[in-house]
Design a protein around this nucleic acid. Structure first.
Lengths: 269, 269
DNA sequence: CAAATAGTGTCTCTAAGACAATATCAC
DNA sequence: GTGATATTGTCTTAGAGACACTATTTG
């Protein structure tokens, strides 16, 4: 039997196989208008969640995602889902990991691939509040204690989701968590969100992902605030500028009308 | 309809689904006996490959792996495969990524999860040469040119596999490659191997994975050689010792009978 | 003592952090 | 000028790399 004959007689669907989904943690940094036009806006890291309209976990909040289709890579599926949910094409998908623990989905054998992506606040679509598939941006607060226990707080107006997790391990630039209390999050999405967030922070350290939060041209202070907001730290402007200088290039454009010294706009090198 | 009723009537197998495999790149560092007992052995990074006994890609070399079974996580499947192929339980699995490009498997819609794992040379089983599923260790040479083109050379005695790749991107601590010439490797395994190797090198930088190549107790020179072999660089002993000191703890045991000053054995802290 | 590997001390240079100072706008 | 943010200069300190040196074994 040659290879062609083998393939013609071979039926891969004889064997047991899982359903496969791609889920995406879409982050943005939301700017809040300041009291006075002369002040800097405040900023919050935000995550897009959808409220499930169907069983299981009906009315729970979940990461956007969907089943991977034939003739489509997992990445293409994730990109399609981002476009459907936000109308935006993110500049890069960060692969976070796969989730395949038996029993993680009450519908049956479902394996999920998780990606993180980042979009500029400017491109964010206003998300409706009473569609069939309701979507909303939640501000993210994630605190890790020294003993590995963590709390993940997601807030959208009156809606507060508070999950509790425990760090299992942190190797190879990825962390993994066990869920102690999933709040009102569907499936194992609490752990997924925590792991995506850790990967995002890790990547922000190396300035790999922070540009994706901003439009093409930006000021260095904006860029610095992005890193500070994502990593939940604060750095000195002089040091940030020294380190970032090799990754950016100045344009001849500046901000204006801000009531203080104008800032030079930069682009990613 | 409540959740229980929904789940009872829900048949997930109505929808189209892929087959799912877990593949593993198992690395070890092989020591070659020196000319004289007083000399250091030479070392080579090695990778375990299996020769396919069936279509497709019959007689080609491939990464060990297999279909994920129901009630088994992808990680458990990878560990099971490592155990079957080497008889060894690796101390950690490094997730590398998922491979889902349409057409990557002529049998149909197959998605593969790739892991890397590392085992000590001491635990390596002698692999047979004429089984149904022939397995063999190949020495690994991987060179990246400045323009992104790479060559991957795998050698076992007379058998030389030489694949050519092109770096597509390197973000988030992972590299991805396009295959220009897969040598005699099955499927897209040439790219998988390159990506696993890059992740391994990345991880060796942070001393995360180098301990797994050695038994519980080891000398600092051995540990240094592991890092040098994996990353294909050489470092000065004084500097290596200074950096590694925070990760190791000395025991009261030393080597002996080596024809030179005995070395203190260390353990991972 | 010779040959081999094991292990230490220290100089230099670079990068990171801290802090102070100056620049430029709107009003 | 005042108040705000933008931007630069430089001091100090921690770490990486280079190199020279000492230590301990077998034969």
């Amino acid at each position: 039997m040659n290879e062609q004959e083998f393939l013609q007689s071979y039926d891969i669907t004889k064997y047991d196989r899982p359903s496969l989904t791609a889920d995406i943690a879409i982050f943005a940094i939301h700017r809040f208008a300041p009291d006075s036009y002369r002040h800097e806006p405040s900023r919050e890291l935000s995550l897009l969640l959808v409220r499930r309209g169907q069983h299981p976990f009906r009315d729970c909040w979940a990461l956007p995602g969907g089943f991977v289709q034939r003739e489509e890579s997992v990445e293409a599926c994730a990109l399609r889902e981002v476009a459907e949910e936000t109308g935006v094409q993110p500049s890069a998908l960060m692969p976070i990991g796969s989730y395949s623990k038996p029993g993680r989905d009450p519908r049956g054998w479902v394996v999920s691939e998780l990606f993180a992506s980042v979009i500029p606040d400017e491109d964010r679509l206003p998300v409706g509040g009473d569609d069939a598939a309701e979507a909303a941006w939640f501000s993210v607060r994630f605190d890790e204690a020294a003993d590995g226990s963590c709390s993940l707080r997601l807030q959208n107006g009156q809606t507060l989701i508070c999950a509790r997790l425990k760090l299992l391990q942190s190797r190879f630039g990825r962390s993994s968590f066990a869920i102690l209390d999933s709040g009102a999050l569907a499936f194992d999405h609490a752990a997924m969100i925590a792991e995506a967030l850790c990967a995002l922070r890790e990547s922000a350290k190396e300035f790999e992902v922070i540009f994706d939060f901003l439009p093409k041209r930006f000021t260095l202070t904006e860029l610095q605030r992005v890193q500070e907001t994502v990593m939940n730290v604060s750095v000195l402007p002089a040091n940030f500028r020294r380190k970032i200088s090799e990754y950016v290039v100045a344009t001849d454009e500046t901000t204006e009308g801000a009531g203080h010294r104008p800032a030079v706009l930069y682009e990613k090198k």
